[in-house]
Structures are given as C-alpha cells and as structure tokens.
Amino acid sequence: MNVLEQWTALVCRELGIDPERVDRNAVLDLTRDVAHGVARPAAPLTAYLLGLAQGAGTAPQDALERLSMMARNWEQATTETMKDA
C-alpha cells in the first residue's frame, strides 16, 4: 500500500466513509483538470465543493464529469463569455 492509499484509508476511517465508494482516480483527474485548466488553488476548492454538494444530495450524478469538462474548456468558455460582455 502506497502513501496515498494509506492516507485515503485513514481519512475514510476517520470520516466514516466506505473506501470502496471513493473513486480516487476520478477525483485526482478532476483536480488535475481544474489545476491545469483554471488555477491551481481552484483544484482543492472544487473537490471540496463537489463533496459538499454530494453530501447534501444536490450534485447531479455526472457532476464530476461535468466539472472536469468545464475545467478543460475554461479558456474557451471565458473567451466566449468575454465576447458576449
């Protein structure tokens, strides 16, 4: 077990989360997309906001994929938004 797996297991135990429900790679992919597409500080904030929404039951089922797509298209989206302003 590597450090990331150990950390994930310990955090899951501390928070009462079933580690089998954690898609670590998907979360890491999301934070990578946000860090590279938007801004590095936005990555942990996005993961936290997604967790809040999922915990509250307000996140769409495909929220993680939608957020990743938004991050990957951030430059294009902001360019188009600036043209509309």
Score class of each variant (00 low, 15 high):
1 M>T: 02
2 N>G: 13
3 V>C: 11
4 L>H: 08
6 Q>I: 09
6 Q>A: 11
8 T>V: 13
9 A>N: 05
10 L>K: 15
12 C>I: 00
13 R>Q: 14
14 E>R: 15
15 L>P: 01
19 P>W: 03
19 P>A: 01
19 P>I: 02
19 P>R: 04
20 E>Y: 13
24 R>E: 08
24 R>A: 07
25 N>I: 03
25 N>D: 15
25 N>S: 10
27 V>G: 02
27 V>M: 10
27 V>N: 07
28 L>P: 15
29 D>L: 14
30 L>R: 03
30 L>D: 02
33 D>Q: 03
33 D>T: 04
34 V>A: 00
34 V>P: 15
36 H>F: 09
38 V>Q: 09
39 A>V: 02
39 A>I: 04
39 A>G: 11
41 P>H: 00
41 P>E: 09
45 L>R: 10
46 T>H: 03
46 T>Q: 10
46 T>K: 07
46 T>D: 13
47 A>H: 01
50 L>H: 05
50 L>V: 04
51 G>R: 03
52 L>I: 11
56 A>Q: 05
56 A>P: 14
58 T>M: 09
61 Q>C: 08
63 A>E: 06
63 A>M: 02
64 L>D: 01
65 E>F: 00
67 L>M: 09
67 L>I: 04
67 L>G: 04
68 S>G: 11
70 M>V: 06
70 M>T: 12
71 A>I: 03
73 N>F: 09
73 N>P: 15
74 W>K: 05
75 E>Q: 15
75 E>M: 05
76 Q>P: 10
76 Q>D: 14
77 A>E: 06
78 T>Q: 12
80 E>R: 01
81 T>Q: 14
82 M>N: 11
83 K>E: 13
83 K>D: 13
83 K>Y: 11
84 D>V: 15
